[in-house]
Each structure stands twice: as structure tokens, then as C-alpha cells.
Amino acid sequence: MEVPNVKDFQWKRLAPLPSRRVYCSLLETGGQVYAIGGCDDNGVPMDCFEVYSPEADQWTALPPLPTARAGVAVTALGKRIMVIGGVGTNQLPLKVVEMYNIDEGKWKKRSMLREAAMGISVTAKDYRVYAAGGMGLDLRPHSHLQHYDMLKDMWVSLAPMPTPRYAATSFLRGSKIYVLGGRQSKYAVNAFEVFDIETRSWTKFPNIPCKRAFSSFVTLDSHLYSLGGLRQGRLYRQPKFLRTMDVFDMEQGELVTFPRKLWLPTALLAGSPSLTPIPAIFQGNQPTVLETAEAFHPGKNKWEILPAMPTPRCACSSIVVKNCLLAVGGVNQGLSDAVEALCVSDS
């Protein structure tokens, strides 16, 4: 696939989010985007549940979450949306699992997690959900890996992760679940581990070279990119935003060395999903809010500056839909209801 030219990218202002909030979870299924939960101006979790239709450029309110919460793990199982764990209105992790039937427009309680947890990483394969890690009521990171069987409405424990953590990134490739990074308390974890669904066993891969929290992980072909993030922890007195980029070749099972000159042009806290075929497009925040958007061109091996985001903000939720990157909500002198899409040409 030909890589688009920088001039082909443009931002579009879309219908605003009906309920201003931050830390909502986004999910795309059936060509629609669902915004689930989040926090209000006072940091209190909300029960908001809305769907965005790209064709109509319109948000529609849906039946609210039975349990108000933020930072939930979400996944789609056919015409059902599964919402797992998160933080409740008492600011504590939850064990609640709820499922929304898109055709019926109704919520149902499902079998709860064995322990309350926030910051769970989920993947789904063959109508089974795999939930890794999380932080419990005791604020300790979990090493749990469990799968949910929708037909039996039952959670089953699998071999625990070698490294306990929460807020990790996980993705499915073939029959393997890759789990990267995460946190233990406020400290970043650079563990990189893979669970084989068929053999039900874990393999440890080389650690991510630069230990940092809130970095983004983007896959392109057989390569995995780890970008940006926040350096903090026992060895560092002051947190620092990073330009670091690490690359892992999943076919060869080894790290690819990228020189400092190929790191991000701007130090960023958080990144966004890829816009195929460009591995990473970012809008993030340093101590001040940025409108920056930058892309790495794999053919040229360099970063390029894209048009700036119309509404500068941080902590926005993001998702790729039909080759457009949607930036939803976030913070800029208060909560933002801005929804904007970075698209290629007329897509």
C-alpha cells in the first residue's frame, strides 16, 4: 500500500460529544463508535453511553451503564459489547462485568471478575475474552490472566503473567497475545511477554529498552513500535516526557536499533493508534497542552509534521475508524467536548 503524502492529511470537525468527560473508553464495531463511561469535571465516574455514526455525523444517547465507571476495559463480541472492571464512584476498582446487546438495546449483568480490578488489558478471539493484569483493591498489580466464555458465562483462570502489572497494552496476533509495558504502583514496567493460546504458556521477550509509562504501542506489518511516554520512578526525581522510539521485529524476535535522530520530533506523553500505513500519529501533552500531530514514514525512515489538531488538548480518547483517526473529548482549561478526525484525502 502506498504511503499517503503529508499534504493529503486534513482535520475535520465532527459533531461534539454530548457529555463532556475524560477517560472514556472508545470501541468501534459495525462501523459505529461507542463512548463508554468516563469522569466528569470533579473526577467522578459517569454512566454515559453514546454511539457515533460516521455517516450521519451524529451522536445518539443509549441506555446508560448500569454501573457508573471510568477507565473500563471494553471489547466487542459480535453484536454485544462487554464492559469489564474499571473505577467506580467510590474511586475504588470494580469486579462488575456488564454486557450490552446492540440489537436489543439492553444491558445484562454477567459473571463478575474473581477480584475487583482497574487497568485490565483485554483481547478477544473466537467469542472468548482474555483479561490480563489489573490493579486490585489493595492497589497491588495483578498477574492474573483469565478468559471469559460467553456461552457459559464463566471466567476461567489461566497461567499467570510472569510480571504483575496494570495499564499494560495487549493485542492479538494469530494465536498469541502480546502484553507490553504497564505499571506497578506509579512505576513503569518494561516487561514484554507473550501468551500462546494453543499451548497456554507464557514466553518472555526482550524487555522494552526504555522504561516509561503511558507510551504508545503501534503495530505495522511485522514490526512493533513503542513511542513516547513518561519517565518516572525510583531513579528519577522529576518526571520527564520522552521522544524515545523502540522497534521490535516480531518475525525475528529481536529489537531493532533506531538512532536518536529518528526519535519523535516532540516529546509526548501519549500517542494514538496508527493510521495505516503510517505507524504512528500523535497528539499529546507536555506540561502545556499541545495541538501537535506527527507521523513516522516507514519508507523514508523519518518523522513528518502533519496539520495541527484544531482543538489543542490532552488526555483525549482516540480510535481509528475507516482510515480516520478520531480524537474525542479530553482536557483544555476544563473538559472538552471536541470530536475531530484526521483523515487521508476524502476518506
Rank of each mutant, 00 (worst) to 15 (best):
K152N: 13
K152Q: 15
K152S: 13
K152E: 15
K152C: 11
W155K: 12
S157I: 13
L158R: 02
A159F: 08
P160K: 10
P160L: 12
P160G: 12
M161Y: 09
T163G: 02
P164W: 10
P164R: 15
P164E: 14
P164N: 15
R165S: 12
A167P: 05
A168W: 15
T169P: 03
T169I: 15
R173L: 13
G174N: 03
S175I: 01
K176F: 00
V179L: 13
L180P: 06
G181C: 13
G182S: 04
S185H: 09
K186V: 04
Y187V: 06
A188R: 12
A191G: 07
E193C: 00
E193H: 01
E193L: 01
V194Y: 10
V194Q: 08
F195D: 00
F195P: 00
F195E: 03
D196W: 04
E198M: 02
E198A: 01
T199Y: 02
S201W: 08
S201E: 08
T203H: 06
K204Y: 05
K204Q: 04
N207I: 01
P209V: 02
K211V: 09
K211Y: 02
K211F: 01
A213I: 09
S216M: 05
S216D: 04
S216C: 06
V218P: 10
L220P: 05
L220R: 04
D221C: 08
D221W: 06
D221G: 06
S222I: 13
S222Q: 10
